[in-house]
Design a protein around this nucleic acid. Sequence first.
DNA 1: CAGTGGTCTAGACCACTCT
DNA 2: GAGTGGTCTAGACCACTGA
Lengths: 246, 246
Amino acid sequence: MQSVPDARTDERLPIYQRLKDALAERIQDGAWKPGDAIPAESDLAAEFGVALGTMRKAIEGLVVQGLLERRQGRGTFVRRADLGNTLFRFFRHTGKGGRPLAPTQRLVARRTGPAGRAAAAALGLAPEDPVLWLKRLRLVDDEPLVIDEIALPLPRFEKLATVPAADFDELLYPLYERVLGVTIARATDRIAFARATAAVARPLAIATGDPVVVIERTAFGHDGEPLEWRRSHGPAERFSYDVEIR
Amino acid sequence: MQSVPDARTDERLPIYQRLKDALAERIQDGAWKPGDAIPAESDLAAEFGVALGTMRKAIEGLVVQGLLERRQGRGTFVRRADLGNTLFRFFRHTGKGGRPLAPTQRLVARRTGPAGRAAAAALGLAPEDPVLWLKRLRLVDDEPLVIDEIALPLPRFEKLATVPAADFDELLYPLYERVLGVTIARATDRIAFARATAAVARPLAIATGDPVVVIERTAFGHDGEPLEWRRSHGPAERFSYDVEIR
DNA sequence: CAGTGGTCTAGACCACTCT
DNA sequence: GAGTGGTCTAGACCACTGA
């Protein structure tokens, strides 16, 4: 049987490609952690036995991919993915009278249960596989704006089932990293509109049947593995999103 | 009085930056037109008196910006911006039974009138400045899906006022290029939600007050000048949009 | 086959950051 | 001042395309 060519050693690939894969692997493996500085370009070039320019091209590629971040005169660092905040990405920030916004969040429910069809498809599980379900309400200036249902594959996220509810005050992705060492690198959102069900309308303090935005997100790790699925609902009138094309 | 440093000659900028600006200018000026091949990298390097690698870096930048397109072994070409199709970018393509979709479009109205507040702000005009207004209905499988109101600054788009209505069968950006030599390079969309007014509901064959998506687009030329503003409405239930983050 | 972009090298000097 | 990334050069060879 023919051995499958490894991305790092497949000689048909350009050197800089193989370097990219080798460096990316160090990040995935956690040898280099988010926030860390990686060795100097010249050191890396020497270590891999390539010209400086070739190593630069490899690093440049990872910078474009958002894995690394260069800081002139200081070094090259493993980037901490900033996937923004659904609240501010997708909703109008009605900063009335220039007052600073006060976004807060509250864990409404936490339970273990079957993934169901949508979450299972996104996470690569069977619908009956158990996941940790979180329900979270996000408010701005004490006004409910978004309700999230979040599915996290078990056993990987088991520890989150016992973390004190108060810890869910913070953003979730940093929490995953702190508690579980799980890093979210990338996510896909799908935006659509629907009518509010009773379960969604109540926490949002709107009427059943009112128009809502539905944002379904799948979040992935550096290795491309799906780690989290969530479905968020918010009042449609508050929704606003900007897209830049080309 | 100090002369303002030209992007192409400001010596504080890296050479490759100045090269980028010089090449971009040739595209803006129409010296190199969309679809054209530009001279070989080696020729350009010689012409500008720089090393090949430096010219490559400049070209690479324009490729990333979407101005140029490389084709291995053939040459480097001026890219024809493909701003996609609002229909397929933002709405579910319900290809029932695998039948190919039949998207069509119809010019519903064409008139000259004041820009009004929204269009004027986007186009950098005064609200009372005259623009050419187009109203266009877009259908898929003979079912109305999107109604567009399009504002085009006037004197520049004057010729479009007399072009036969049948020509509006095609996509607008290629039409602008063919009839006026105007190239759209970039656009910004803002997506929001509203209730259908009577004017919007009638052509879409929905009820007044039904939920609709509103997509406001400003389109720009290579020089960053706003060239077109449009507001599109479509039924909210048919809307679907995917966003990839980082 | 000639001409194009794609990869790679080995060196030089500059600009920035920190101590 | 030492160490980092940023720019630039001048050359070599490879891989692909089209006539």
